[in-house]
Amino acid sequence: MQRYFVEETRWENDILRISGDDSHHIVRVMRMKAGDELIAIHPEKGPAHCKIAEISEGSVSCKVMNWVEEEREMPVHVTIVASLGKGDKLEQIVQKGTELGASSFIPYQADRSVAKWDAKKEPKKIQRLQKIAKEACEQSERTFVPDVKSVHTLDQILKLRENYDYCFFGYADEARHSNAGTLKHALKPVKDEQSILVAFGPEGGFSELEVERFKQSDFSSITLGPRILRMETAPLYFLSTLSFMME
């Protein structure tokens, strides 16, 4: 059943009104009519099974039939720090990372990031990434849309250490050493409801200065197996491994 995330201001008791792009999608793409059913997700209460009551110009009015209980979220809260990369790599990370259960994303202007974001264009880029996360949530039937933060500096990321139970950074050089610890070993102590912050470098990896500062701030380096992964693959490998272990 088609799912839509609806702002809290659009709800009034058991009646809600969907507008904007979602309204267009319901009417023009899905060709729904009065009497058809859908899932609307309240930011706090979660998913509700709804029936379309009325369709007007630019708006779809629905009535809640019943609230739905479901467990679709990762049992741990994971924030992905993704370095800026070429092309649509960050978009891939947000889309697929959302499908795999990430809680939030932080774009990072790494020392070796080839891509550079213009400060004036950043809000539109973040807005697009947030839209991608929302659409990925609807596709994967999640009940929570990850938040895409503004671009962070290294200092800002390191200050977040005190807000998380575990902080990691992916370090490609770890995979080149046979005595490197496994990701399974690093994630073994993690329990339900705990939080993880994990940072991944750009195409050229983290600089020596970044690695040193991560270590000084009590971030643990992790290896993602014996093979060197692309920057857009590494976060997905991490989330998949964590999902397998926790779920």
Rank of each mutant, 00 (worst) to 15 (best):
F5Y: 09
D14S: 10
D14H: 11
I15M: 09
I15G: 04
L16R: 04
R17Q: 14
I18Q: 10
S19F: 08
D22K: 05
S23G: 14
H24N: 12
I26M: 02
V29D: 11
M32T: 01
G35P: 07
E37Y: 05
P43Y: 04
E44Y: 03
G46P: 07
P47K: 06
H49D: 15
C50G: 09
I52W: 13
A53H: 10
I55P: 00
S56K: 15
V60N: 03
C62S: 07
K63L: 08
M65C: 11
W67G: 05
E70Y: 03
M74D: 10
H77C: 09
A82V: 11
E91N: 00
E91P: 00
E91D: 13
Q92R: 12
Q92F: 11
G97I: 01
T98E: 03
E99R: 10
A102R: 02
S103K: 13
S104F: 09
Y108Q: 01
D111E: 15
D111K: 12
W117I: 15
K121C: 06
Q127W: 04
R128F: 08
Q130S: 15
I132G: 02
K134N: 06
E135P: 08
V145I: 15
V145W: 07
D147M: 11
V148C: 01
V151K: 00
H152G: 03
T153K: 13
T153V: 13
D155S: 08
Q156C: 01
L160K: 13
L160F: 00
R161M: 03
N163L: 08
A172P: 09
A172W: 10
D173N: 13
A175M: 07
R176D: 02
L183W: 00
K184H: 12
H185P: 02
K188D: 14
K188E: 14
V190T: 07
V190N: 05
K191Y: 06
S195C: 01
L197Y: 05
V198G: 04
G201D: 04
G204T: 08
F206C: 11
S207P: 05
V211M: 06
E212S: 14
F214S: 04
F219H: 07
S221K: 09
G225C: 05
R227V: 06
R227L: 11
R230N: 03
M231C: 14
M231R: 06
T233F: 09
A234S: 14
F238P: 05
L242A: 01
S243T: 12
S243M: 12
M245I: 09
